[in-house]
Computed example of a mutant assay.
Amino acid sequence: MKQQSFEQDVQPLLLYAVPLIALCILLEWWFTRHDDHHRSYDPGDFKASVGIGLGSLIINGILKAATVAMSLFFYELVPWRLPNTWWVWILAYAGIDLCNYTAHYVAHKQRFWWATHVTHHSSEHLNLSTSFRNSWTQYLKIVFFIPVWCLGIHPAITFTCYQLDLLYQFWIHTEVIGKLPRWVEFIFVTPSHHRVHHGSNAAYLDKNFGTTFILWDRLFGTFAEEAEKPVYGLTKPVESFDVIYLNFHEWVAIWRDLRRATSVRQAWTILFGPPT
Rank of each mutant, 00 (worst) to 15 (best):
Q3T: 14
D9I: 07
P12T: 04
L15Y: 09
L27M: 14
E28P: 09
W29I: 14
W30S: 10
W30K: 14
F31K: 06
F31T: 03
H34K: 15
H34S: 08
D36V: 03
D36C: 03
R39Q: 11
Y41W: 00
Y41F: 03
D42K: 12
K64V: 12
A66R: 06
L72E: 10
Y75R: 05
Y75W: 02
E76M: 13
P79I: 03
Y93G: 14
Y93C: 14
G95C: 06
I96G: 11
L98C: 01
L98A: 01
T102G: 14
H104N: 01
W114F: 15
W114T: 09
A115Y: 05
T116D: 00
T119N: 00
S122G: 05
H125G: 10
N127P: 11
N127Y: 11
F132E: 00
N134L: 06
S135Y: 04
W136D: 00
Y139P: 04
F144N: 01
I153P: 05
A156R: 01
T158D: 05
T158I: 08
T160Q: 13
T160D: 07
D165N: 13
F170V: 10
W171F: 05
I172N: 14
T174R: 07
G178I: 08
P181H: 10
R182C: 04
W183S: 05
F186Q: 09
H194K: 09
H198I: 02
N201E: 02
Y204L: 05
Y204P: 06
G210W: 02
R218D: 08
F220S: 02
G221Y: 05
T222E: 05
A227G: 06
G233Q: 04
K236D: 15
S240A: 09
D242Y: 09
D242M: 09
F248M: 00
A253K: 12
A253N: 12
R256F: 13
R259H: 15
A261Y: 03
V264P: 03
Q266T: 06
W268T: 02
L271P: 14
T276R: 14
